Amino acid sequence: MRVRRSLHAVTAALLLWWSGPAARAQCDRSSETTALDLSVSYELPTFTADFPIQNVVTLDGVVYVGAVNRIYALNPDLTKRSEYRTGPLLANETCGRTPSGGGGGGRVDNRNIALVLENIYDKGLFSCGSADNGVCRRHVLDDGVSTSAVDEQVSCFGDEARRRRGEPGDPDVVVGPSGSRVLNVESNLIKFFVGNSEIPGEGGRPGAAPRPHTFALHRMKSSQNGFTFFSPRSHMDLIPPLRGSYYLRYVHSFHSGPFTYFLTVQPVGGASRAYHTRIVRMCSGDLEIRRYVEMPLECISTNKRRRRRRRRPKT
């Protein structure tokens, strides 16, 4: 029986091969046209902000948009459901230490540097702006009893006494004036990595807020009145001779598996005017910055082909 079945299968295959010579040639052209129909129009939901948009995050279908002087909460169809004005602000209206000295006392725009979501204690949003001296504001969106709009329950987040003292390395000072990248890490507590750019000539004004760490891992205190570090090894900085004179810009951050990645733009060498991209990798589950890897990303183009090594015949 096995022999007969195999012979039948071979015979059927040969019949199909010989009966369809056209199948071995080119396929017939389809009778239906494949031209693109440009008359079809699609109506996609859109939202136009009054100010430049800088950050976008989502929580439970709601889209939160951070722009200059505004934070918008949008429905899934991108219609506006609420709005919070973050500026322009006077010096005594900002969070953090009030800058001293000159400045004219006029209002300043508040650029949205970072948006961080909270979904452990209460559903909330941290917005960190340039006018708030590195300190974030907390927007309680859902306290377990009622749902609030983005502009209803808002407060400066941090230890007020510590902010008044202007302590160096204050963990409540999250973002820097030159721009920051914040990456939230999913855990049983609220923690996030922050990379603060260092641009020569920026952030060195007299009376400015304490300079944040170049790279840090912040966590929310269980008392919910500010941020803290896991340990003194939860942050790192450029060496003192380079702070304020070395160009370092954090441009992107993302997760992949158990790792956290940041992309930076830095000089190729210490005194070089050429720049390249470097990728930074850490373990997302670490509480201290102890497995830090940094390497350059380069695209190399060459016309020379590598010569293949001749393999000796095996004996």
Rank of each mutant, 00 (worst) to 15 (best):
residue 229 F to I: 03
residue 195 G to P: 01
residue 263 L to N: 11
residue 296 P to I: 03
residue 154 V to L: 11
residue 25 A to K: 12
residue 24 R to D: 13
residue 267 P to N: 11
residue 138 R to D: 07
residue 152 E to L: 05
residue 162 R to F: 01
residue 224 Q to C: 09
residue 157 F to E: 04
residue 267 P to A: 10
residue 186 E to A: 15
residue 87 G to I: 12
residue 89 L to E: 13
residue 52 P to A: 13
residue 80 K to E: 15
residue 43 E to I: 15
residue 122 D to F: 13
residue 26 Q to T: 14
residue 13 A to T: 10
residue 126 F to C: 11
residue 290 R to G: 04
residue 6 S to C: 08
residue 214 T to G: 08
residue 251 V to G: 03
residue 232 P to R: 02
residue 12 A to M: 11
residue 261 Y to M: 09
residue 70 R to G: 08
residue 40 V to H: 09
residue 211 R to K: 01
residue 192 F to Y: 14
residue 46 T to P: 06
residue 87 G to M: 13
residue 18 W to S: 14
residue 254 F to L: 03
residue 63 V to D: 01
residue 9 A to V: 14
residue 167 E to G: 03
residue 309 R to N: 06
residue 300 I to W: 05
residue 300 I to E: 06
residue 301 S to Q: 12
residue 117 L to A: 10
residue 31 S to I: 14
residue 183 L to I: 07
residue 298 E to A: 14
residue 139 H to V: 12
residue 94 T to W: 02
residue 295 M to I: 04
residue 163 R to P: 00
residue 211 R to G: 00
residue 248 L to K: 01
residue 115 L to C: 10
residue 263 L to V: 15
residue 57 V to L: 04
residue 254 F to S: 07
residue 208 A to V: 02
residue 171 P to K: 01
residue 266 Q to S: 10
residue 22 A to D: 14
residue 128 C to I: 14
residue 85 R to K: 12
residue 67 A to E: 09
residue 227 F to D: 09
residue 269 G to T: 11
residue 91 A to L: 00
residue 286 D to P: 02
residue 141 L to V: 13
residue 296 P to M: 03
residue 182 V to P: 07
residue 106 G to T: 10
residue 257 G to D: 03
residue 138 R to G: 09
residue 77 D to E: 07
residue 301 S to R: 06
residue 32 E to D: 13
residue 183 L to S: 06
residue 205 R to Y: 04
residue 222 S to T: 05
residue 245 S to H: 08
residue 264 T to Q: 13
residue 211 R to P: 00
residue 294 E to L: 08
residue 67 A to Q: 12
residue 289 I to C: 05
residue 38 L to G: 15
residue 55 N to L: 08
residue 259 F to Q: 06
residue 136 C to G: 06
residue 35 A to Y: 05
residue 304 K to N: 12
residue 131 A to V: 02
residue 3 V to T: 06
residue 130 S to P: 04
residue 264 T to C: 06
residue 36 L to E: 08
residue 194 V to H: 02
residue 88 P to E: 02
residue 294 E to C: 10
residue 33 T to R: 07
residue 167 E to Q: 03
residue 16 L to T: 12
residue 314 K to V: 05
residue 175 V to W: 09
residue 94 T to F: 02
residue 96 G to T: 03
residue 250 Y to P: 03
residue 103 G to T: 14
residue 222 S to Q: 12
residue 134 G to A: 01
residue 214 T to D: 09
residue 163 R to A: 03
residue 156 C to G: 00
residue 59 L to R: 08
residue 223 S to K: 04
residue 59 L to G: 01
residue 26 Q to V: 15
residue 296 P to D: 06
residue 146 S to R: 15
residue 271 A to C: 06
residue 273 R to Y: 01
residue 172 D to C: 02
residue 296 P to L: 01
residue 93 E to S: 11
residue 223 S to N: 10
residue 22 A to W: 14
residue 301 S to Y: 12
residue 295 M to S: 06
residue 120 I to V: 14
residue 48 T to R: 14
residue 174 V to Q: 01
residue 19 S to D: 13
residue 286 D to A: 14
residue 260 T to Y: 01
residue 40 V to E: 15
residue 259 F to L: 14
residue 114 A to R: 11
residue 248 L to G: 02
residue 141 L to W: 11
residue 94 T to H: 05
residue 93 E to G: 12
residue 306 R to L: 03
residue 57 V to T: 13
residue 92 N to L: 07
